[in-house]
Amino acid sequence: MDETNVNVNSFKAWVLASRPKTLSGAAVPVLIGIASAVCMYGRDGIRVVPAVLCMLFALVMQVDANFVNDYFDFMKGTDDETRLGPKRACAQGWITAAAMRRGLLITTLLACAVGLPLIAYGGWEMILVGLACVVFCFLYTISFSYLGLGDVLVLVFFGLVPVCITYWLVAPPTPLTSIPVPVIVLSLACGLEIDTLLVVNNYRDIDNDRRAGKKTLIVRIGPVWGRLLYFFLGFLAGGLVVYGASRMTQSWNLWQQVLIIIFYLFHYNTFLAMRRINKGAALNRVLGMTARNMLIFGVFVALCLLL
């Protein structure tokens, strides 16, 4: 969407603030959770309503997280004129601070409303899960990202929680006592792959984050180890998929091998671009390539489970 001529608090401004390109990060874990349930119980054995609700909850929470990040980074002065990443709504004046407070309140309440019916499928424990998602959505921007713990939250709330809880809710109403190990392995793979987006984002902003006192993991380990971390996360995620999917399907055929190899090629090509560009706003191209890789990863994992 064109970022010029954006009227204050307009519909266009809110669309830009929602950051549509980030929504794949919310959709992929739910997709993998659903595909895992289909693999285990068959297409006719899963529950469709909780699958839809899980996807809607994840998407609304992602928009909510984007609003929270936009508002609190603006209030802390992190999003100043030296920012190299994509433009932020409050910092650009597209949305006023007061309007953004109302916006994030509305999206938070909407996420709660969407998630509330999941109690009927997963019990009252779903309130605790939803509450944790909302609380850590705020804590990530307010505190954890400044302490270098953002990567841990990504692993938990873009991997373990959405994949495993979606699987739990979508599976047929039989007495489930635990999540199968292969599903947990796939959830870890998902969290690691999505964390590559945070790694390249923090890699690009390493100098600005240092000045702002934001001690991200990349600030702590430095750019060289940051690039290696990016490379390692993607390849480890693929390896975990091979283990988890082969355990669930009781096989590992040629098509599954081809899909993982294609993902590895995309990831390696993106790593080379990251190393070549190295610094500056041009790394936003690597950010876009990484978002594409995340979506490819989710689709390929689903296909590995369903082929």
Rank of each mutant, 00 (worst) to 15 (best):
K76S: 12
S246W: 00
A99Y: 00
F57S: 15
I127Q: 12
L104W: 15
P223M: 10
V156D: 05
L254G: 01
F235M: 10
L287R: 01
R211D: 06
V258I: 13
C39K: 11
I296L: 14
I277H: 09
S24H: 06
G130E: 13
A189G: 15
V185M: 01
L128M: 15
M126C: 12
G115Y: 11
C90H: 03
V134K: 03
T290Q: 05
D195R: 11
A291Y: 02
V6T: 04
T141Y: 03
A17R: 02
F231A: 13
F72R: 05
T249L: 07
V301M: 04
A26W: 05
W124D: 01
Y140S: 06
L56A: 14
V301A: 10
A91L: 08
D205S: 01
T4Y: 13
F136N: 10
L198M: 13
T141C: 05
L118W: 10
R101L: 14
R227V: 03
L295W: 04
R292M: 15
N5Q: 08
L233F: 15
A26D: 04
G42K: 04
Q92I: 04
V60A: 14
A212G: 01
V181C: 03
P29G: 02
G42Q: 09
P175C: 10
D2P: 00
E81I: 13
G148S: 00
L307V: 14
M40I: 10
T290L: 06
G130L: 14
M248L: 15
L303F: 15
